[in-house]
Structure formats: structure tokens, C-alpha cells
Nucleic acid binder design. Structure first.
Length: 1051
DNA sequence: GAGCACTGC
């Protein structure tokens, strides 16, 4: 109890008690709980929602201790002063004005108005209290005002040690003006929280550790904070830092989240808790944000901060960076940590100290702490408890290997499966097993469900699955369900071998017994599901039913469904795999990790004690890997490498990755970037060792820098960089945007929820096929293959105003189209930023590309995908009947195929370029583009058919003609001189051609008579016989001049 | 002749 009083920032935590005018403590608890209940379903916060009985008890118990006891003595005194001072207090409106003027002066005054009622006793001298001496503040906070700057640079200085030395330091610090400030503050910035918020905060485990955490922050440049979901770290850590003055100077507090929704909702949540406007607690995500010059706490997605580092490597705008959800090990998070491990010491050296706080939900932090390359002296790890309710884990006695999507155990509420198809399959089986009848409620949903069942019955029969005793289900009284009976029926239906094993386990559990008696309200949930369908899981389920969400991994991290008590976990995940050698992608289902299984289980304990049913045995669980691998080790890294090169990190191998990508992956990235012209070509001569080393440290080129400024994959960035030709940029932007956004077309194969829907799906399918043909165009536009379909779809959708209706009738995914629209906007800005005279804009009425634009577009697209070329396997090469219609690629032995959904499927061209190869039932190419190229291709040296190229306009026209003339293509008589030419004819086309008198002479003469073709030349020679002679002779040694002159003109 | 989990700039 006494301990609580001494806790760091105890005053901050209790201020509501003393300040809220009418706040009487006793009712607070009730009020708070009421409020908490209201929050149900919102769950924007990991911690503050859904107070439970347990939480209630805790609060009640805690309250008299934490509040009343420590307060009475001092607080009373303060309250007296407060009251007195309040008489002189300015009205809120005037305070607001002070707020802005204060901003012009010292940062310390900035916050006075906020906590005025609370902190007035300090009067003009801002309420500065050392964040560290906060422990003792109660005793001596007034005397210690000066101690404020005590620890300015004192990474080493200890909390309460206010030795004379330190005080001296403090005296010097203020003089330094701009250099002192935010990251080593010693102020206490009051926050005016609502009483109920304050109350709720106090229950958070992380609050109990505030002192420890803040001491660690002050003493160390970097700390690691571990706390599971429910600890409150995400919402509270920024507040601790704010109160400790880390946002009082010029620097602000930055927090990165791996998802946009989290960044937005957390900023709103924290703003609400702190009673501050969103101009002060703001967010920034890819396409939007509400950051202002007043922003002090900024939530953002990790990619946003990475882009900011490109603009200002030292992140001088920030005094603290918090990396949230670091355990997820997203690539950007990993890169950020690596970069910040270098930025933080640099900032300290510069006298602009900065703090780094890495927050993780698991204790797997060795990759950060035991990595000497990353942090030579390991950062301290602070662990915080989580306010989670216990979850009983039930393992299967035996793990069925064939199929794991059982129905009999889904008495729970949240079911984890691996993919859309499974989700829909299990949904319909559950609906059948636990029919949801609308007798008690209203709406026409019953019908839907009924039809649904019928429809799937048909489906089932089609699939020749084991017989189903449908009668058993429908006859089963809704309120008399018996688990065993149902399970038995289910056994029958699925015919799973392992079905017999698990029923006994649940017998003793009264909760379980009751489960099947309630009809289930079954909802699917996965990422690609339309948002309005997704939203259903957050709405109240119909009366008399029980919510059962059948979900993929979205429910593990991205979406938190309120009120989950039971979790059923199949123990598997579908993951994307890349073959590092061939670049082929595939999806495979595999066991998940222990950490991930525990995370899934934890979803059952958010509101009350829960249960987790694992459809695998504990032995199998024991074989799971402890954690999932870091993403960076499982995917190509060319984008990351380019970003790093742009930051002048040439030797990417030496980068302090928390987990490094493989050498192969780095090498492949470097090679691709060189081939795209983003990196300088490494030397090919010299010592082998040096050559090898140089291959992994190619510096970035100017083109590479431009590419790095485009927020898309390097291949696409290259296309954008080339896009200016022939006014193609708007098209390139549209194509790149649509290739970047995944799943543009609605999945029309998915099972429908009703007959209405199913007929609609069929209709849409037919229409989409028709539209695809239309979009693919005719004649030359067919050469763009599927990209023309994309371009057509995007153009048509935009033309129609990008409405949900248009998308629905044309089989387009609305969310994807909106994303494309925003991405087009962003790319347009990015392109204009690099090349201002371009003046590109997003045209909602973009006309289809002209023929010459199509040809140009094809070349541009090929520049980014040059190595993704495939050649049709000729009749005589077919060694296996399966190779029919197959294509050969440079890197794969096996043939690849055009996907049946491709515009090119029916007329397979000789050559195609593809975006990627994905292995499903076959190796399929995605997004094909017809391709003709000149000369030979790649290391396989395939001869490629020639293609007509548009003759350039302007001076280039004459340059090109001059080149052909010199090469002997225009007048065959000149061919024999080719071998003695003083310069290579191709230099005519070089930008520096002007530097050579002979190029200039030839060009000037051709241009003077407008000679750009053979006919024009012959016409001029008729008039002027000696035309071009002297200019041509400049290209030849004198020894042949006479002979040339003799036979001039060479016709 | 079709089957793709999940994210971030």
C-alpha cells in the first residue's frame, strides 16, 4: 500500500480524484464499469475494454489502497491551494489562447493549460518534476523543481540520485537552448483525464510498472518492453512518455504499428484517454493522416516511418520512437529496428538524444537483445503482466492427419482455419448442425439460412461425400441438442477417422454441456471478405443465438472479435512460399508455431475465463516450432535492399538485421536491382574475392534513387521511371497500381450464402467474362494481354465513379478498386515530385491508349519484367503430353502455363512476359503480356522475332537515319566502309553525340535538308550531288576519302 | 480449364 503511494507518477494517476469537481470516488467504480460495458464490441484498445467480474473485484480491492490512503494527506493540502488558485484561473477560452502564444516561447509552458486545475499550485513555474525522482516526489516535489534537468544527458545517471554534480549539469543545460530538450526531459506534464478513464487505467498491469519502465527509459537509450495483449502497453506507454515530458520540447513521440487500422484506432483511443484533440494525438498511414504542427504523439504504420527515414535519417522530429508489435517481425519493423540501433547513438552524439522502445507481446526478444551487431550492449528487458483471463487448453488425444476441420467441437465461438474455402465449408456444416431459427426473432434471414442449407446439400451430393442425415438435424429440437448425438451425426457426415476420440474430454465441463442447446449464428471471416460482411462479427448476434465466427488468421492479430469465450484451433496456417532459385511462389498449409497457437488461445480469454480446443495433440504441439520465422527470411528482399542502398547503406550484408535474410536472397536482390539499372554494375575484372565482394555492395544509381522514391516494388518503380515516353505515364501508373493491389476481381467461385446470391454470382460471372473480353480490346491492344484487361477494368470503374454498384455488377472487388484509386493518386504525386515538368494527373476519364502508346507501354512493362519472359514450347520439343501449351522460362526446367483466366489463354502467343509464377495444380503464370523482342534473350540466347518500332520524332529521327546510313543500311555501297569507320555509328544516338564534330556535321546537314529517309536523300542528291560527302568523310580515314568521293553519291 | 494466408510504403 505504501508502495503504491510511492509509485512513479502516482499523482498523475490519481489526479481525477482530486480535481474532478463532482467526482465522488465511491460511484466511480460503477460508472466506470458501465462505461466499460458500453465499449463492448468496439475494442479499439487491447486493454481497456470489456471489464469483467474479475476486473471488477480487482478494482474494488485496489481502490481504497491506491486512491484514498495516499491521497488524503497531501492531496487535501493541495486541494486547498488548488481551490484558492482556481479563483484566479482564467476561463478555458482564454487559456486556449495562452496555449498558442506559449508555443512560441518555451516548450515547458505549452502544457500548462491542460492540467491547470491540477497543477496550478506551481503557478508560473511550470510543474516540472523529474520523471525519475517521481518516486520521491510526493515528499519533495516542490523543492525538486530544479532537479528537472538533472539527467539531461545522463544515460548513466541513476534515478533518484540528485547529486550536486547532476544539479550543476542542470544549470548548464538550459543555456544550450535547442540542444537540451525532449528525450531527456525531467518535466511532469499533466494530463486532464476523465475520471472513468483514469479509473480504468489504474487496472492495467502496465501502470504498476510505470516507474520501473520510465527509469529504464531514462537510463538507457533503448529498452525492450514485453507484455502480452491486455497489458495496456500500446495505449499507456505513449502517455507515460508524454507525462514525463518527452513531447515537451521540439521532438515528439512516434509509435509504429504494423497495421493501418491499429495506427488509426490507437491514436483515437489515446487521444480520448488523454482528453486531447486529434491534432495533438494523431496518426499517419499510407494515404491519410491527421498530423498537424501541434501533434505530440504520432501513431503511424511502420512503412511510414521508414519513408520518413529516407527524408531525414536522424528523425530529428522525434524524441522517442516506440516500435509496437515487434514480435510480429514484419519486414519494416525489423528494418526499422536495425536502422534505429544506429540512429539512436548518432543522435546522442549529436546532442539531440533520442530513445527507442521496442515493444513485444512475447518474450522472444533474443533476436534484439542477444544480437551484438544490433546492440553492442544489450538493452534491458522489462516484462509486464497482462490482464488476461485463464484459458483452459484442451488437446485432442490424437491428431487426425487427413482433415482437421471438424465440426463437433465448434461449440466454441471462434474457429481458426486456414483458408476461404475451408471457412465456407465449415460455416455451412455448422449451420446445418446447429440450425439457427428465427422463431424468436424477426427478419427474413431464416429463409436465407434454409436455402443455404439446401443448396449446400446439393453441393455435397455432387461431391459424393458420405451421406448426411439431414433429418436428424432438422428434427433436432433446437433446445434439446445433445452434444454426443450431434457429434455422432457429424461423424457420420464427415467420416473422419479420428472422430471417436474427443467427446469424453468435455463431459465434465458444464459449460460444454450447455453449448449445443443454443443455436449458432455462424459467420465467416477472412481478409478478402467484403467489409460489410466482416462488420457483422462486431454486431450483436440475434437474440437466442450464439456467435460462432469461422475465421482465417485475420482473427489472430488483425481483428479482435469481442466476447469470445471458446476458441477452436486447427493448429495450421496457410503460408506463402518462395523458391529462392526459381522465384516460383506457392501456398502451403503447415503447422503453426507455439506462439501463434497461444495467441489464438488467448483470444478466448479477453472477457472471461475461456476454453481453447486444439484439434491436435499435445505431443504435436510440442513439436511445433516455438515461434514463427521472421518474415524477412521468407520473401524476396529487392525492395528492402533498394531502400537501404538509397540510405547509402551499400554493404547490405553488414546491416544489423535482427534476423538477416539469406545470402542467396541478398545476392538475388542485388542482381535484379543491377539489371534494372538501380544499382551500378559491379566490376568484372580484378581479384575473384574483390569481384564477389563488389557484387554485394553495388552503390545506388541516380535511377535507383528515383525508383526508391516510388512506393512500389522495384520492378514497378522502374516502369514508372520510364513512363514519360509517349505520354504513357498515366497508363503506367494505372497498370502498376493494379498489379500492386491484390485480388482485383471478385472471387465468383465462392459458395453463396443464399440462392439469390448464387444466381447473382452466376450472372456476375458471365458478365465479368464478357467485360474481360471487352477490356482486353482488339488489335494492337491485345498485345498488352491481361494488363489491358486490368487497364480497362480500372479505367471503366473510375469512369463510373468507382462506385460499389459498378464493382458489384462487374465482378470487381470494391476495396481493391478503392485501393488502386488511392495508389494512383500517390504514385502520380510521387512521379510529379521527381519530374515536375511532367504535370501528370489522375484522369478519371482516361481514354484507352493509342496504338503507339500500346507499343510504348509494352516496352516499358518489359523493362521491369525483362527476366520474366517465357517462350512457347514448340511441337517438336514436347517430350510429355502434359507439356502441351506449356512455356519454357529461363530458370525452370518444368514448363509453365497460361492461366485459364488469362486473356491469352485461348490464343497463346510465341512469347509472353509474366508478373510471377504461382504453383497450384500446375505452374501458372500471372498477368501475361504478349511479347516480341529484338535480338536474343538472356543467357539462353533464344532468337527473338523482330518488331516494328515507331520512328522517333524530332532530331532523334535524323540521328537514327544517320546511324542507319553509316551502318550501310540506307545505301548498300557504303557498307564496305563500315569496317574502317572512325566511330561506331551507334554513338549517333548517345546523348553526348554532340561532343563529336563528326556527329554534329552529319546531323546538321541531314536536318538542313530534312532528310530522314532514303527517298528524301535520293531527292536531294538529284539536286546536289555532293550532299553529305564531306560530312560522311569525317567518319573515315583520309586514305579512303578519294575513293569515296569518286563514287559519290553511293547509289 | 481454374483453388491465394496476412501485412506495410
Amino acid at each position: 500500500m505504501g508502495r503504491l503511494r510511492k509509485k512513479y507518477n502516482w499523482k498523475g494517476r490519481q489526479q481525477n480524484e482530486s480535481q474532478s469537481p463532482g467526482g465522488d470516488g465511491s460511484t466511480d467504480v460503477v460508472v466506470e464499469l458501465g462505461g466499460g460495458e458500453k465499449l463492448k464490441g468496439v475494442d479499439t484498445c487491447n486493454a481497456l475494454v470489456l471489464p469483467s467480474n474479475k476486473a471488477k473485484k480487482k478494482t474494488v480491492a485496489e481502490k481504497p489502497i491506491s486512491k484514498k490512503k495516499p491521497l488524503t494527506k497531501k492531496q487535501k493540502k493541495q486541494a486547498g491551494i488548488l481551490a484558492k488558485l482556481a479563483e484566479f484561473q482564467l476561463p478555458e477560452s482564454e487559456l486556449k489562447m495562452l496555449y498558442t502564444t506559449a508555443k512560441l516561447g518555451t516548450g515547458d509552458k505549452l502544457y500548462q493549460n491542460k492540467g491547470m486545475t491540477d497543477e496550478v499550485e506551481d503557478g508560473g513555474t511550470a510543474p516540472k518534476i523529474s520523471s525519475l525522482s517521481g518516486v520521491n516526489r510526493k515528499r519533495k516535489w516542490k523543492e525538486e523543481v530544479e532537479e528537472e534537468a538533472e539527467e539531461q544527458q545522463g544515460e548513466e545517471s541513476i534515478a533518484h540520485s540528485s547529486e550536486p554534480k547532476e544539479v550543476e549539469k542542470s544549470a548548464q543545460q538550459p543555456k544550450e537552448g535547442p540542444v537540451r530538450k525532449p528525450s531527456q526531459p525531467a518535466v511532469f506534464v499533466p494530463v486532464d483525464r476523465m475520471p472513468e478513464i483514469q479509473e480504468a487505467r489504474l487496472r492495467l498491469p502496465v501502470l504498476a510498472e510505470e516507474q520501473v519502465i520510465m527509469e529504464a527509459v531514462r537510463e538507457n537509450p533503448c529498452i525492450v518492453l514485453c507484455g502480452e495483449t491486455g497489458s495496456g502497453k500500446t495505449t499507456q506507454m505513449p502517455q507515460f512518455l508524454y507525462e514525463a515530458g518527452y513531447a515537451s520540447g521540439k521532438g515528439i513521440i512516434g509509435i509504429t504499428e504494423p497495421r493501418r487500422v491499429a495506427a488509426v484506432s490507437m491514436s483515437q483511443r489515446v487521444a480520448m484517454e488523454m482528453n486531447l484533440p486529434t491534432q495533438v494525438v494523431s496518426y499517419q498511414i499510407r494515404y491519410e493522416g491527421n498530423v498537424t504542427t501541434d501533434t505530440k504523439i504520432k501513431f503511424m504504420t511502420d512503412g511510414v516511418l521508414l519513408k520518413e527515414i529516407q527524408k531525414d535519417f536522424l528523425l530529428q522530429h522525434y524524441s522517442v520512437i516506440i516500435i509496437d508489435e515487434a514480435h510480429e517481425r514484419s519486414v519494416y519493423t525489423d528494418i526499422l529496428i536495425g536502422l534505429l540501433s544506429r540512429i539512436v547513438p548518432l543522435r546522442n552524439k549529436k546532442g539531440l538524444p533520442m530513445k527507442l522502445i521496442i515493444m513485444s507481446a512475447t518474450l522472444r526478444v533474443e533476436d534484439f537483445t542477444d544480437n551484438k551487431k544490433l546492440f553492442p550492449s544489450p538493452p534491458p528487458v522489462i516484462k509486464v503482466d497482462a490482464r488476461q483471463f485463464p484459458v483452459s487448453i484442451h488437446f485432442n488425444k490424437r491428431t487426425p492427419m487427413e482433415d482437421y476441420s471438424w465440426v463437433d467441437k465448434t461449440g466454441g465461438i471462434l474457429v481458426f482455419l486456414t483458408g476461404q474455402a475451408e471457412v465456407h465449408d465449415v460455416c455451412r456444416r455448422l449451420r446445418k448442425a446447429f440450425p439457427f431459427r428465427r422463431s424468436t426473432t424477426d427478419t427474413g434471414k431464416e429463409e436465407e439460412t434454409f436455402k443455404d442449407t439446401r443448396r449446400f446439400k446439393k453441393d455435397k451430393q455432387k461431391q459424393a461425400l458420405p451421406r448426411i442425415h439431414l433429418d436428424n438435424y432438422s428434427a433436432l429440437p433446437v433446445d434439446e441438442g445433445d452434444e454426443d448425438q450431434l457429434a455422432g451425426v457429424d461423424d457420420d457426415e464427415c467420416g473422419y477417422e479420428g472422430c471417436e476420440l474427443d467427446l469424453g474430454e468435455d463431459e465434465g465441463d458444464p459449460d460444454e454441456k450447455a453449448d449445443p442447446s443454443i443455436p449458432l449464428y455462424v459467420l465467416p471471416l477472412y481478409s478478402l471478405l467484403a467489409p460489410e460482411q466482416q462488420a457483422k462479427v462486431f454486431q450483436a448476434s440475434p437474440a437466442g443465438t450464439r456467435l460462432c465466427v469461422v475465421a482465417t488468421n485475420v482473427a489472430e492479430t488483425s481483428l479482435t472479435i469481442p466476447g469470445i469465450k471458446y476458441v477452436v484451433d486447427c493448429g495450421r496456417v496457410k503460408k506463402r512460399y518462395y523458391d529462392r532459385v526459381t522465384g516460383v511462389s506457392s501456398f502451403k498449409v503447415s503447422w503453426t508455431s507455439q506462439a501463434s497457437a497461444n495467441q489464438r488461445a488467448g483470444r478466448a480469454g479477453r472477457t472471461e475465463p475461456g476454453h481453447c480446443y486444439r484439434l491436435f495433440s499435445s505431443a504435436v504441439f510440442g513439436d511445433f516450432s516455438e515461434f514463427s520465422e521472421a518474415e524477412i527470411t521468407r520473401r524476396p528482399v529487392e525492395d528492402l535492399v533498394l531502400q537501404m542502398k538509397d540510405l547509402n547503406i551499400d554493404k547490405v550484408v553488414n546491416f544489423p538485421f535482427p534476423t538477416a535474410p539469406s545470402g542467396e536472397a541478398l545476392m538475388a536482390a542485388e542482381q535484379l536491382l543491377v539489371s534494372l539499372g538501380a544499382l551500378e554494375e559491379p566490376p568484372r575484372t580484378g581479384r575473384v574475392k574483390d569481384i564477389e565482394r563488389a557484387k554485394l555492395s553495388c552503390p545506388v544509381t541516380p535511377l535507383g534513387r528515383a525508383m526508391a522514391s516510388f512506393p512500389v516494388a522495384p520492378r514497378f518503380a522502374k516502369m514508372l521511371a520510364l513512363g514519360r515516353q509517349q505520354d504513357c505515364l498515366p497508363y503506367v501508373i494505372a497498370v502498376v497500381a493494379s498489379m500492386t493491389v491484390r485480388e482485383i476481381f471478385e472471387d465468383l467461385e465462392r459458395p453463396a450464402a443464399s440462392e439469390d446470391e448464387s444466381s447473382k454470382l452466376a450472372q456476375n460471372k458471365a458478365r465479368l467474362m464478357q467485360m474481360r473480353r471487352l477490356w482486353a480490346g482488339q488489335g494492337p491492344s491485345l498485345l498488352l494481354g491481361d494488363l489491358m484487361v486490368l487497364l480497362g477494368a480500372v479505367g471503366a470503374c473510375e469512369y463510373a465513379g468507382c462506385t460499389p454498384q459498378f464493382c458489384e455488377t462487374n465482378g470487381l472487388r470494391y476495396k481493391a478498386m478503392v485501393e488502386i484509386r488511392r495508389l494512383r493518386g500517390q504514385l502520380t504525386n510521387a512521379v510529379n515530385a521527381v519530374c515536375s515538368e511532367g504535370g501528370v494527373f489522375v484522369d478519371s476519364k482516361m481514354a484507352p491508349p493509342t496504338e503507339s502508346q500500346v507499343i510504348c507501354l509494352r516496352q516499358i512493362l518489359l523493362a521491369g519484367l525483362g527476366d520474366h519472359l517465357a517462350r512457347r514450347i514448340r511441337e517438336e520439343e514436347i517430350l510429355d503430353p502434359k507439356w502441351k501449351n506449356g512455356y519454357k522460362t529461363p530458370l525452370l526446367d518444368d514448363p509453365v502455363f497460361i492461366h485459364p483466366s488469362s486473356a491469352l489463354f485461348k490464343k497463346p502467343p510465341e512469347f509472353v512476359v509474366y508478373q510471377e509464377v504461382m504453383e497450384t495444380t500446375k505452374m501458372y503464370m500471372r498477368e501475361g503480356l504478349v511479347c516480341h523482342c529484338t535480338s536474343t534473350f538472356y543467357r539462353v540466347a533464344w532468337p527473338l522475332p523482330a518488331v516494328e518500332k515507331a520512328y522517333p520524332e524530332g532530331l532523334d529521327r535524323f540521328k537514327l537515319f544517320a546511324k542507319f546510313l553509316l551502318e550501310g543500311e540506307v545505301c548498300l555501297k557504303l557498307k564496305k566502309n563500315c569496317s574502317v569507320l572512325l566511330s561506331n555509328p551507334s554513338i549517333m544516338m548517345k546523348t553526348w553525340a554532340k561532343l563529336q564534330p563528326r556527329t554534329e556535321a552529319l546531323l546538321v546537314e541531314l536536318a538542313s535538308e530534312k532528310v530522314d529517309c532514303r527517298d528524301a536523300l535520293l531527292a536531294v542528291w538529284k539536286e546536289k550531288e555532293k550532299f553529305l560527302l564531306s560530312a560522311y568523310c569525317q567518319w573515315l580515314p583520309e586514305s579512303v576519302h578519294q575513293e569515296v568521293a569518286k563514287s559519290w553519291p553511293p547509289v
